[in-house]
Write a protein that binds this DNA or RNA. Structure first.
Lengths: 247, 247
DNA sequence: CACGCGCTTTGATCTGTGTCAAAGCCGTCG
DNA sequence: CGACGGCTTTGACACAGATCAAAGCGCGTG
Protein backbone atom coordinates (compact mmCIF):
# COMPACT_ATOMS: atom_id res chain seq x y z
CA UNK A 1 0.00 0.00 0.00
CA UNK A 2 1.51 3.29 -1.08
CA UNK A 3 2.31 5.80 1.58
CA UNK A 4 3.50 8.49 -0.84
CA UNK A 5 1.04 11.08 -2.02
CA UNK A 6 0.29 9.11 -5.16
CA UNK A 7 -1.44 11.97 -6.93
CA UNK A 8 1.44 12.63 -9.32
CA UNK A 9 2.23 8.99 -9.92
CA UNK A 10 3.27 8.85 -13.57
CA UNK A 11 4.70 5.35 -13.70
CA UNK A 12 3.11 4.79 -17.08
CA UNK A 13 1.64 1.49 -16.01
CA UNK A 14 -2.03 2.25 -15.85
CA UNK A 15 -3.09 -0.65 -13.72
CA UNK A 16 -0.50 0.17 -11.17
CA UNK A 17 -1.74 3.69 -10.60
CA UNK A 18 -2.33 4.14 -6.89
CA UNK A 19 -5.48 5.55 -5.39
CA UNK A 20 -4.70 9.21 -4.78
CA UNK A 21 -4.35 9.94 -1.11
CA UNK A 22 -7.20 12.43 -0.87
CA UNK A 23 -9.58 10.00 -2.56
CA UNK A 24 -8.28 7.10 -0.49
CA UNK A 25 -9.23 9.07 2.60
CA UNK A 26 -12.62 9.96 1.17
CA UNK A 27 -15.16 8.28 3.39
CA UNK A 28 -18.04 8.80 1.03
CA UNK A 29 -16.57 7.70 -2.29
CA UNK A 30 -18.92 4.78 -2.62
CA UNK A 31 -21.85 7.20 -2.51
CA UNK A 32 -20.54 9.66 -5.06
CA UNK A 33 -19.99 10.09 -8.73
CA UNK A 34 -16.55 8.54 -8.07
CA UNK A 35 -17.97 5.20 -7.00
CA UNK A 36 -17.49 3.35 -10.31
CA UNK A 37 -14.01 4.69 -11.07
CA UNK A 38 -10.91 2.52 -11.32
CA UNK A 39 -7.61 3.79 -9.97
CA UNK A 40 -6.62 5.42 -13.23
CA UNK A 41 -9.85 7.38 -13.51
CA UNK A 42 -9.70 8.24 -9.84
CA UNK A 43 -6.23 9.68 -10.32
CA UNK A 44 -7.51 11.80 -13.19
CA UNK A 45 -10.40 13.05 -11.07
CA UNK A 46 -8.08 13.74 -8.21
CA UNK A 47 -5.83 15.77 -10.49
CA UNK A 48 -8.57 18.24 -11.38
CA UNK A 49 -10.31 18.37 -8.00
CA UNK A 50 -9.66 21.09 -5.49
CA UNK A 51 -10.81 20.66 -1.91
CA UNK A 52 -12.55 23.43 -0.03
CA UNK A 53 -13.88 23.87 3.46
CA UNK A 54 -16.76 26.18 4.31
CA UNK A 55 -17.98 27.34 7.68
CA UNK A 56 -21.59 26.98 8.63
CA UNK A 57 -23.83 29.50 6.87
CA UNK A 58 -21.45 30.32 4.05
CA UNK A 59 -22.56 30.93 0.50
CA UNK A 60 -21.12 28.55 -2.11
CA UNK A 61 -22.66 30.18 -5.18
CA UNK A 62 -25.70 32.20 -6.16
CA UNK A 63 -28.49 31.57 -8.62
CA UNK A 64 -27.71 33.20 -11.94
CA UNK A 65 -23.93 33.20 -11.54
CA UNK A 66 -22.00 31.58 -14.40
CA UNK A 67 -21.71 27.95 -13.33
CA UNK A 68 -17.98 27.54 -13.71
CA UNK A 69 -17.70 24.89 -11.05
CA UNK A 70 -19.44 21.70 -10.07
CA UNK A 71 -19.07 20.16 -6.63
CA UNK A 72 -19.22 17.04 -4.64
CA UNK A 73 -20.13 17.45 -1.00
CA UNK A 74 -17.83 15.28 1.10
CA UNK A 75 -18.81 16.44 4.56
CA UNK A 76 -21.54 18.49 6.21
CA UNK A 77 -24.93 19.69 5.01
CA UNK A 78 -25.73 22.16 2.25
CA UNK A 79 -29.04 23.72 1.25
CA UNK A 80 -29.97 24.88 -2.23
CA UNK A 81 -32.74 27.41 -2.75
CA UNK A 82 -34.45 29.81 -5.10
CA UNK A 83 -35.79 33.26 -4.26
CA UNK A 84 -38.64 35.39 -5.53
CA UNK A 85 -38.08 39.12 -5.97
CA UNK A 86 -39.89 39.94 -2.73
CA UNK A 87 -37.79 37.55 -0.68
CA UNK A 88 -40.00 34.47 -0.53
CA UNK A 89 -37.68 31.49 -0.50
CA UNK A 90 -38.04 27.90 -1.61
CA UNK A 91 -35.39 25.46 -0.44
CA UNK A 92 -35.32 22.89 -3.22
CA UNK A 93 -33.00 20.45 -1.53
CA UNK A 94 -30.63 19.57 1.26
CA UNK A 95 -27.35 17.96 0.27
CA UNK A 96 -25.32 15.64 2.47
CA UNK A 97 -21.93 13.97 2.23
CA UNK A 98 -21.71 12.18 -1.10
CA UNK A 99 -24.20 14.36 -2.97
CA UNK A 100 -23.29 15.97 -6.26
CA UNK A 101 -23.98 19.67 -6.60
CA UNK A 102 -24.59 21.48 -9.87
CA UNK A 103 -26.36 18.97 -12.11
CA UNK A 104 -29.29 21.26 -12.82
CA UNK A 105 -27.12 24.04 -14.16
CA UNK A 106 -26.44 25.09 -17.70
CA UNK A 107 -24.43 28.22 -18.27
CA UNK A 108 -25.73 29.69 -15.01
CA UNK A 109 -26.62 28.12 -11.67
CA UNK A 110 -30.35 27.48 -11.37
CA UNK A 111 -30.29 28.04 -7.60
CA UNK A 112 -28.14 29.32 -4.77
CA UNK A 113 -26.19 27.02 -2.47
CA UNK A 114 -25.26 27.67 1.14
CA UNK A 115 -23.81 25.55 3.91
CA UNK A 116 -25.92 24.71 6.96
CA UNK A 117 -23.09 23.15 8.96
CA UNK A 118 -19.37 23.28 8.43
CA UNK A 119 -18.86 21.48 5.13
CA UNK A 120 -16.21 20.20 2.75
CA UNK A 121 -16.45 19.83 -1.00
CA UNK A 122 -14.46 18.60 -3.96
CA UNK A 123 -14.64 21.27 -6.63
CA UNK A 124 -14.27 20.75 -10.37
CA UNK A 125 -13.92 23.26 -13.18
CA UNK A 126 -16.78 22.53 -15.53
CA UNK A 127 -14.63 22.25 -18.65
CA UNK A 128 -12.17 19.91 -17.01
CA UNK A 129 -14.92 17.72 -15.66
CA UNK A 130 -16.54 17.55 -19.11
CA UNK A 131 -13.25 16.34 -20.57
CA UNK A 132 -13.07 13.68 -17.91
CA UNK A 133 -16.61 12.57 -18.59
CA UNK A 134 -15.62 12.01 -22.20
CA UNK A 135 -12.58 10.01 -21.20
CA UNK A 136 -14.40 7.92 -18.61
CA UNK A 137 -17.89 7.06 -19.82
CA UNK A 138 -18.61 5.09 -16.66
CA UNK A 139 -18.49 8.41 -14.85
CA UNK A 140 -20.98 9.96 -17.23
CA UNK A 141 -23.23 6.95 -16.85
CA UNK A 142 -23.02 7.33 -13.10
CA UNK A 143 -24.01 10.98 -13.35
CA UNK A 144 -27.01 10.02 -15.43
CA UNK A 145 -28.10 7.58 -12.74
CA UNK A 146 -27.65 10.26 -10.11
CA UNK A 147 -29.67 12.70 -12.19
CA UNK A 148 -32.41 10.10 -12.43
CA UNK A 149 -32.49 9.74 -8.64
CA UNK A 150 -32.68 13.47 -8.22
CA UNK A 151 -35.52 13.72 -10.70
CA UNK A 152 -37.48 11.05 -8.86
CA UNK A 153 -36.87 12.86 -5.60
CA UNK A 154 -37.99 16.14 -7.14
CA UNK A 155 -41.25 14.52 -8.23
CA UNK A 156 -41.81 13.25 -4.74
CA UNK A 157 -41.24 16.74 -3.39
CA UNK A 158 -43.72 18.22 -5.88
CA UNK A 159 -46.31 15.76 -4.57
CA UNK A 160 -45.53 16.92 -1.06
CA UNK A 161 -45.67 20.62 -1.91
CA UNK A 162 -48.75 20.40 -4.07
CA UNK A 163 -50.91 17.97 -2.15
CA UNK A 164 -49.83 17.11 1.39
CA UNK A 165 -51.00 18.68 4.65
CA UNK A 166 -48.57 20.24 7.12
CA UNK A 167 -48.55 17.13 9.29
CA UNK A 168 -47.92 14.88 6.30
CA UNK A 169 -45.10 17.15 5.15
CA UNK A 170 -43.31 17.05 8.49
CA UNK A 171 -43.70 13.28 8.79
CA UNK A 172 -42.39 12.81 5.23
CA UNK A 173 -39.50 15.13 5.97
CA UNK A 174 -38.39 13.30 9.10
CA UNK A 175 -38.54 9.96 7.33
CA UNK A 176 -36.57 11.37 4.40
CA UNK A 177 -33.86 12.68 6.72
CA UNK A 178 -33.72 9.33 8.45
CA UNK A 179 -33.44 7.45 5.17
CA UNK A 180 -30.67 9.72 3.92
CA UNK A 181 -28.79 9.46 7.21
CA UNK A 182 -28.92 5.68 7.09
CA UNK A 183 -27.70 5.58 3.53
CA UNK A 184 -24.79 7.85 4.44
CA UNK A 185 -23.96 5.59 7.37
CA UNK A 186 -25.12 7.98 10.08
CA UNK A 187 -27.64 7.38 12.83
CA UNK A 188 -31.08 6.81 11.35
CA UNK A 189 -33.05 6.76 14.51
CA UNK A 190 -32.28 9.56 16.65
CA UNK A 191 -31.96 11.61 13.42
CA UNK A 192 -29.82 14.68 13.36
CA UNK A 193 -31.82 17.68 12.10
CA UNK A 194 -29.15 20.30 11.52
CA UNK A 195 -31.33 22.85 9.73
CA UNK A 196 -33.29 25.70 11.34
CA UNK A 197 -37.07 25.86 11.51
CA UNK A 198 -36.91 28.54 8.84
CA UNK A 199 -35.01 26.26 6.46
CA UNK A 200 -37.42 23.41 7.11
CA UNK A 201 -40.36 25.74 6.52
CA UNK A 202 -38.85 27.00 3.28
CA UNK A 203 -38.26 23.42 2.18
CA UNK A 204 -41.78 22.26 2.99
CA UNK A 205 -43.66 25.33 1.76
CA UNK A 206 -44.82 26.27 5.27
CA UNK A 207 -44.01 28.94 7.87
CA UNK A 208 -41.74 28.49 10.87
CA UNK A 209 -44.75 28.76 13.17
CA UNK A 210 -46.57 25.93 11.44
CA UNK A 211 -43.44 23.78 11.46
CA UNK A 212 -43.00 24.38 15.17
CA UNK A 213 -46.64 23.72 16.01
CA UNK A 214 -46.61 20.53 13.97
CA UNK A 215 -43.48 19.25 15.68
CA UNK A 216 -45.17 19.95 19.01
CA UNK A 217 -48.27 18.09 17.92
CA UNK A 218 -46.29 15.02 16.82
CA UNK A 219 -44.41 15.13 20.12
CA UNK A 220 -47.64 15.36 22.11
CA UNK A 221 -49.02 12.39 20.20
CA UNK A 222 -45.91 10.43 21.14
CA UNK A 223 -44.68 9.92 17.58
CA UNK A 224 -41.41 11.77 18.04
CA UNK A 225 -39.19 13.09 20.83
CA UNK A 226 -37.10 16.24 20.56
CA UNK A 227 -33.70 15.62 22.11
CA UNK A 228 -30.61 17.69 22.80
CA UNK A 229 -28.32 18.67 19.92
CA UNK A 230 -31.07 18.85 17.32
CA UNK A 231 -31.68 15.14 17.50
CA UNK A 232 -35.16 13.79 16.91
CA UNK A 233 -36.18 10.29 17.92
CA UNK A 234 -38.79 8.67 15.70
CA UNK A 235 -40.62 6.84 18.46
CA UNK A 236 -43.36 5.52 16.20
CA UNK A 237 -41.98 5.08 12.74
CA UNK A 238 -45.01 3.07 11.61
CA UNK A 239 -47.41 5.85 12.48
CA UNK A 240 -45.16 8.44 10.85
CA UNK A 241 -45.00 6.41 7.65
CA UNK A 242 -48.76 6.05 7.71
CA UNK A 243 -49.17 9.81 8.03
CA UNK A 244 -46.54 10.59 5.43
CA UNK A 245 -48.28 8.59 2.73
CA UNK A 246 -51.91 9.27 3.44
CA UNK A 247 -53.80 10.68 6.43
CA UNK B 1 -31.50 10.80 -51.66
CA UNK B 2 -32.53 7.27 -50.72
CA UNK B 3 -36.12 6.32 -51.24
CA UNK B 4 -35.74 2.79 -49.88
CA UNK B 5 -36.54 2.11 -46.26
CA UNK B 6 -32.91 2.36 -45.22
CA UNK B 7 -33.42 0.73 -41.86
CA UNK B 8 -31.71 -2.52 -42.79
CA UNK B 9 -28.94 -0.92 -44.81
CA UNK B 10 -25.92 -3.10 -44.16
CA UNK B 11 -23.62 -1.76 -46.86
CA UNK B 12 -20.72 -1.79 -44.43
CA UNK B 13 -19.77 1.77 -45.34
CA UNK B 14 -20.70 3.63 -42.20
CA UNK B 15 -20.72 7.10 -43.64
CA UNK B 16 -23.07 6.03 -46.36
CA UNK B 17 -25.76 4.79 -44.02
CA UNK B 18 -28.99 6.56 -44.94
CA UNK B 19 -31.25 8.27 -42.45
CA UNK B 20 -33.94 5.72 -41.63
CA UNK B 21 -37.25 6.70 -43.11
CA UNK B 22 -39.16 6.98 -39.87
CA UNK B 23 -36.47 9.23 -38.40
CA UNK B 24 -36.23 11.23 -41.60
CA UNK B 25 -39.92 11.96 -41.27
CA UNK B 26 -39.58 12.85 -37.60
CA UNK B 27 -40.44 16.50 -37.33
CA UNK B 28 -39.11 16.88 -33.82
CA UNK B 29 -35.74 15.15 -34.08
CA UNK B 30 -33.83 18.34 -33.42
CA UNK B 31 -35.60 18.65 -30.07
CA UNK B 32 -35.02 15.10 -28.91
CA UNK B 33 -32.37 12.82 -27.59
CA UNK B 34 -31.71 11.97 -31.26
CA UNK B 35 -30.57 15.48 -32.13
CA UNK B 36 -26.81 14.85 -31.96
CA UNK B 37 -26.83 11.51 -33.76
CA UNK B 38 -25.10 10.86 -37.07
CA UNK B 39 -26.72 8.60 -39.64
CA UNK B 40 -25.11 5.47 -38.30
CA UNK B 41 -26.31 6.10 -34.77
CA UNK B 42 -29.71 7.12 -36.04
CA UNK B 43 -30.00 3.84 -37.90
CA UNK B 44 -29.15 1.96 -34.71
CA UNK B 45 -31.76 3.90 -32.78
CA UNK B 46 -34.29 3.34 -35.49
CA UNK B 47 -33.60 -0.39 -35.37
CA UNK B 48 -34.61 -0.68 -31.71
CA UNK B 49 -37.45 1.84 -31.73
CA UNK B 50 -41.06 0.83 -32.06
CA UNK B 51 -43.68 3.45 -32.86
CA UNK B 52 -46.96 3.61 -31.01
CA UNK B 53 -50.05 5.72 -31.25
CA UNK B 54 -52.33 6.39 -28.28
CA UNK B 55 -55.76 7.94 -28.21
CA UNK B 56 -56.53 10.82 -25.95
CA UNK B 57 -56.85 9.79 -22.30
CA UNK B 58 -54.96 6.52 -22.60
CA UNK B 59 -52.62 5.20 -19.97
CA UNK B 60 -49.02 4.65 -21.09
CA UNK B 61 -47.71 3.16 -17.84
CA UNK B 62 -48.38 3.30 -14.12
CA UNK B 63 -46.24 4.28 -11.19
CA UNK B 64 -44.58 1.24 -9.66
CA UNK B 65 -44.67 -0.90 -12.80
CA UNK B 66 -41.31 -2.35 -13.85
CA UNK B 67 -39.88 0.29 -16.18
CA UNK B 68 -39.08 -1.93 -19.12
CA UNK B 69 -39.53 0.83 -21.69
CA UNK B 70 -38.44 4.38 -22.19
CA UNK B 71 -40.18 6.71 -24.61
CA UNK B 72 -39.81 9.71 -26.76
CA UNK B 73 -42.98 11.68 -27.39
CA UNK B 74 -43.16 12.61 -31.06
CA UNK B 75 -46.65 14.04 -31.22
CA UNK B 76 -49.38 15.16 -28.84
CA UNK B 77 -49.39 15.93 -25.13
CA UNK B 78 -48.80 13.58 -22.21
CA UNK B 79 -49.17 14.16 -18.48
CA UNK B 80 -47.20 12.41 -15.76
CA UNK B 81 -48.52 12.25 -12.22
CA UNK B 82 -48.27 10.69 -8.80
CA UNK B 83 -51.14 9.69 -6.53
CA UNK B 84 -51.63 9.49 -2.79
CA UNK B 85 -53.54 6.55 -1.35
CA UNK B 86 -56.71 8.61 -0.94
CA UNK B 87 -56.72 9.78 -4.53
CA UNK B 88 -55.08 13.19 -4.25
CA UNK B 89 -53.12 13.67 -7.43
CA UNK B 90 -50.05 15.72 -8.32
CA UNK B 91 -49.32 16.20 -12.00
CA UNK B 92 -45.54 16.55 -12.05
CA UNK B 93 -45.21 17.44 -15.69
CA UNK B 94 -46.72 17.82 -19.13
CA UNK B 95 -44.75 16.38 -22.03
CA UNK B 96 -44.91 17.62 -25.60
CA UNK B 97 -43.49 16.48 -28.92
CA UNK B 98 -39.75 16.01 -28.51
CA UNK B 99 -39.79 15.27 -24.77
CA UNK B 100 -38.13 12.19 -23.37
CA UNK B 101 -40.19 10.07 -21.00
CA UNK B 102 -38.77 7.82 -18.32
CA UNK B 103 -35.58 9.48 -17.13
CA UNK B 104 -36.64 9.51 -13.50
CA UNK B 105 -37.15 5.76 -13.35
CA UNK B 106 -34.98 3.07 -11.93
CA UNK B 107 -36.35 -0.45 -11.84
CA UNK B 108 -39.90 0.88 -11.52
CA UNK B 109 -41.60 3.95 -12.96
CA UNK B 110 -41.66 6.80 -10.45
CA UNK B 111 -44.96 8.12 -11.82
CA UNK B 112 -47.85 7.27 -14.13
CA UNK B 113 -48.11 8.58 -17.67
CA UNK B 114 -51.29 9.24 -19.61
CA UNK B 115 -52.07 10.98 -22.88
CA UNK B 116 -54.08 14.21 -22.88
CA UNK B 117 -54.50 14.36 -26.64
CA UNK B 118 -53.94 11.74 -29.29
CA UNK B 119 -50.20 11.09 -29.13
CA UNK B 120 -47.38 9.20 -30.78
CA UNK B 121 -44.23 7.88 -29.18
CA UNK B 122 -41.02 6.09 -30.07
CA UNK B 123 -40.58 3.27 -27.59
CA UNK B 124 -37.30 1.66 -26.53
CA UNK B 125 -36.61 -1.42 -24.47
CA UNK B 126 -34.50 -0.27 -21.59
CA UNK B 127 -31.74 -2.84 -22.08
CA UNK B 128 -31.44 -2.12 -25.77
CA UNK B 129 -31.32 1.61 -25.19
CA UNK B 130 -28.62 1.15 -22.55
CA UNK B 131 -26.52 -0.76 -25.04
CA UNK B 132 -26.94 2.03 -27.52
CA UNK B 133 -25.94 4.62 -24.97
CA UNK B 134 -22.71 2.72 -24.48
CA UNK B 135 -22.05 2.58 -28.20
CA UNK B 136 -22.92 6.23 -28.81
CA UNK B 137 -21.66 8.39 -25.96
CA UNK B 138 -22.97 11.54 -27.62
CA UNK B 139 -26.43 10.15 -26.96
CA UNK B 140 -25.67 9.61 -23.31
CA UNK B 141 -24.25 13.10 -23.08
CA UNK B 142 -27.41 14.44 -24.65
CA UNK B 143 -29.54 12.60 -22.10
CA UNK B 144 -27.50 14.12 -19.31
CA UNK B 145 -28.16 17.59 -20.70
CA UNK B 146 -31.87 16.78 -20.94
CA UNK B 147 -31.86 15.51 -17.36
CA UNK B 148 -30.23 18.76 -16.31
CA UNK B 149 -32.99 20.76 -18.00
CA UNK B 150 -35.63 18.69 -16.32
CA UNK B 151 -34.02 19.14 -12.94
CA UNK B 152 -33.95 22.91 -13.39
CA UNK B 153 -37.60 22.85 -14.41
CA UNK B 154 -38.47 20.73 -11.40
CA UNK B 155 -36.83 23.27 -9.11
CA UNK B 156 -38.82 26.04 -10.71
CA UNK B 157 -41.99 24.05 -10.15
CA UNK B 158 -41.10 23.51 -6.48
CA UNK B 159 -40.76 27.27 -6.11
CA UNK B 160 -44.19 27.65 -7.67
CA UNK B 161 -45.81 24.97 -5.51
CA UNK B 162 -44.17 26.02 -2.29
CA UNK B 163 -44.31 29.77 -2.50
CA UNK B 164 -46.49 31.27 -5.22
CA UNK B 165 -50.11 32.47 -4.95
CA UNK B 166 -52.86 31.09 -7.17
CA UNK B 167 -52.65 34.06 -9.52
CA UNK B 168 -48.88 33.76 -9.79
CA UNK B 169 -49.20 30.06 -10.49
CA UNK B 170 -51.65 30.54 -13.34
CA UNK B 171 -49.59 33.33 -14.88
CA UNK B 172 -46.43 31.21 -14.63
CA UNK B 173 -48.25 28.26 -16.16
CA UNK B 174 -49.52 30.19 -19.18
CA UNK B 175 -46.09 31.64 -19.84
CA UNK B 176 -44.53 28.19 -19.52
CA UNK B 177 -46.99 26.73 -22.03
CA UNK B 178 -46.28 29.60 -24.39
CA UNK B 179 -42.52 29.13 -24.10
CA UNK B 180 -42.77 25.39 -24.70
CA UNK B 181 -45.07 25.91 -27.68
CA UNK B 182 -42.66 28.36 -29.26
CA UNK B 183 -39.73 26.06 -28.76
CA UNK B 184 -41.65 23.22 -30.40
CA UNK B 185 -42.51 25.48 -33.31
CA UNK B 186 -46.18 25.90 -32.44
CA UNK B 187 -48.13 29.09 -31.88
CA UNK B 188 -46.84 30.89 -28.83
CA UNK B 189 -49.42 33.57 -28.60
CA UNK B 190 -52.77 32.27 -28.82
CA UNK B 191 -51.49 29.30 -26.80
CA UNK B 192 -53.19 25.96 -27.06
CA UNK B 193 -54.18 24.70 -23.59
CA UNK B 194 -55.16 21.09 -24.25
CA UNK B 195 -55.46 19.99 -20.63
CA UNK B 196 -58.58 20.11 -18.46
CA UNK B 197 -59.07 22.41 -15.49
CA UNK B 198 -58.60 19.36 -13.29
CA UNK B 199 -55.21 18.58 -14.83
CA UNK B 200 -54.13 22.20 -14.51
CA UNK B 201 -55.28 22.24 -10.88
CA UNK B 202 -53.40 19.03 -10.13
CA UNK B 203 -50.28 20.46 -11.77
CA UNK B 204 -50.42 23.75 -9.88
CA UNK B 205 -51.46 22.37 -6.49
CA UNK B 206 -54.88 24.07 -6.62
CA UNK B 207 -58.52 23.03 -7.10
CA UNK B 208 -60.47 23.31 -10.37
CA UNK B 209 -62.62 26.02 -8.80
CA UNK B 210 -59.63 28.17 -7.94
CA UNK B 211 -58.14 27.64 -11.40
CA UNK B 212 -61.41 28.65 -13.01
CA UNK B 213 -61.87 31.71 -10.80
CA UNK B 214 -58.29 32.82 -11.44
CA UNK B 215 -58.68 32.50 -15.21
CA UNK B 216 -61.82 34.59 -14.94
CA UNK B 217 -60.00 37.21 -12.89
CA UNK B 218 -57.14 37.47 -15.40
CA UNK B 219 -59.69 37.73 -18.20
CA UNK B 220 -61.59 40.47 -16.39
CA UNK B 221 -58.35 42.37 -15.86
CA UNK B 222 -57.71 42.16 -19.60
CA UNK B 223 -54.51 40.11 -19.30
CA UNK B 224 -55.81 37.10 -21.23
CA UNK B 225 -58.67 36.15 -23.54
CA UNK B 226 -60.28 32.72 -23.63
CA UNK B 227 -60.91 31.74 -27.26
CA UNK B 228 -62.50 28.81 -29.02
CA UNK B 229 -60.71 25.45 -29.17
CA UNK B 230 -58.95 25.84 -25.83
CA UNK B 231 -56.84 28.70 -27.12
CA UNK B 232 -55.76 31.44 -24.75
CA UNK B 233 -54.49 34.80 -25.96
CA UNK B 234 -51.89 36.42 -23.73
CA UNK B 235 -53.05 40.00 -24.28
CA UNK B 236 -50.64 41.49 -21.78
CA UNK B 237 -47.54 39.35 -21.62
CA UNK B 238 -45.62 42.01 -19.69
CA UNK B 239 -48.16 42.08 -16.89
CA UNK B 240 -48.33 38.29 -16.79
CA UNK B 241 -44.56 38.05 -16.52
CA UNK B 242 -44.62 40.62 -13.74
CA UNK B 243 -47.21 38.59 -11.85
CA UNK B 244 -45.46 35.28 -12.47
CA UNK B 245 -42.20 36.41 -10.89
CA UNK B 246 -43.40 38.56 -8.04
CA UNK B 247 -46.78 40.21 -7.38
C1' DC C 1 -22.68 32.80 35.84
C1' DA C 2 -25.46 36.61 34.43
C1' DC C 3 -26.54 39.01 30.19
C1' DG C 4 -28.27 39.44 25.66
C1' DC C 5 -29.44 37.91 21.16
C1' DG C 6 -31.43 34.92 17.97
C1' DC C 7 -34.13 31.10 17.44
C1' DT C 8 -38.24 28.57 18.79
C1' DT C 9 -42.63 28.06 20.83
C1' DT C 10 -47.21 29.48 21.93
C1' DG C 11 -51.31 32.40 21.45
C1' DA C 12 -54.94 35.20 18.99
C1' DT C 13 -56.74 36.44 14.84
C1' DC C 14 -57.12 36.77 9.76
C1' DT C 15 -57.43 35.23 4.99
C1' DG C 16 -56.63 32.71 0.58
C1' DT C 17 -58.01 28.83 -0.99
C1' DG C 18 -60.71 24.67 -0.25
C1' DT C 19 -65.29 22.59 0.09
C1' DC C 20 -69.97 22.01 -0.99
C1' DA C 21 -73.66 23.18 -4.01
C1' DA C 22 -75.94 24.56 -8.07
C1' DA C 23 -76.32 26.56 -12.48
C1' DG C 24 -74.32 27.26 -17.20
C1' DC C 25 -72.20 25.68 -21.34
C1' DC C 26 -71.00 22.81 -25.11
C1' DG C 27 -70.21 19.02 -27.82
C1' DT C 28 -72.20 14.41 -28.95
C1' DC C 29 -75.32 11.05 -30.07
C1' DG C 30 -79.76 9.24 -30.89
C1' DC D 1 -81.98 19.23 -33.62
C1' DG D 2 -83.01 18.41 -28.92
C1' DA D 3 -81.75 16.20 -24.78
C1' DC D 4 -78.13 14.12 -22.13
C1' DG D 5 -73.56 14.00 -19.69
C1' DG D 6 -69.44 15.88 -18.53
C1' DC D 7 -66.78 19.84 -17.90
C1' DT D 8 -66.56 24.67 -16.33
C1' DT D 9 -68.12 28.62 -13.96
C1' DT D 10 -70.14 31.02 -10.15
C1' DG D 11 -71.74 31.43 -5.37
C1' DA D 12 -71.83 30.85 -0.19
C1' DC D 13 -69.38 29.33 3.48
C1' DA D 14 -65.54 26.84 6.17
C1' DC D 15 -61.02 25.97 7.58
C1' DA D 16 -55.87 25.00 7.40
C1' DG D 17 -52.32 27.49 7.69
C1' DA D 18 -50.60 32.46 7.47
C1' DT D 19 -49.86 36.57 9.97
C1' DC D 20 -49.02 39.40 13.89
C1' DA D 21 -47.53 39.48 18.56
C1' DA D 22 -45.31 38.15 22.67
C1' DA D 23 -43.12 34.95 25.71
C1' DG D 24 -39.66 31.16 26.40
C1' DC D 25 -35.29 29.07 25.83
C1' DG D 26 -30.56 28.04 24.95
C1' DC D 27 -26.15 29.29 24.00
C1' DG D 28 -22.13 32.00 23.40
C1' DT D 29 -19.69 35.87 25.50
C1' DG D 30 -17.58 38.78 28.73
Amino acid sequence: MPTSEGRRDQSGLKDQVAIPQACAACGVRSLTVCAPLDNEALAAVDAIASRHTYESGQNIFDEGEPSNHLFNVTQGTVKIYKLLADGRRQVTGFLFAGDFLGLASEAAYAYSAETITEAKVCRFRRGQLDELLQRFPQMERRLLVIAGHELAEAQEQMLLLGRKTAKERIASFLLLLSRRAKQAGRSEDPVHVPMSRTDIADYLGLTTETVSRTFTKLKTQGLIQLKAGNMVALSDREALAEIAETD
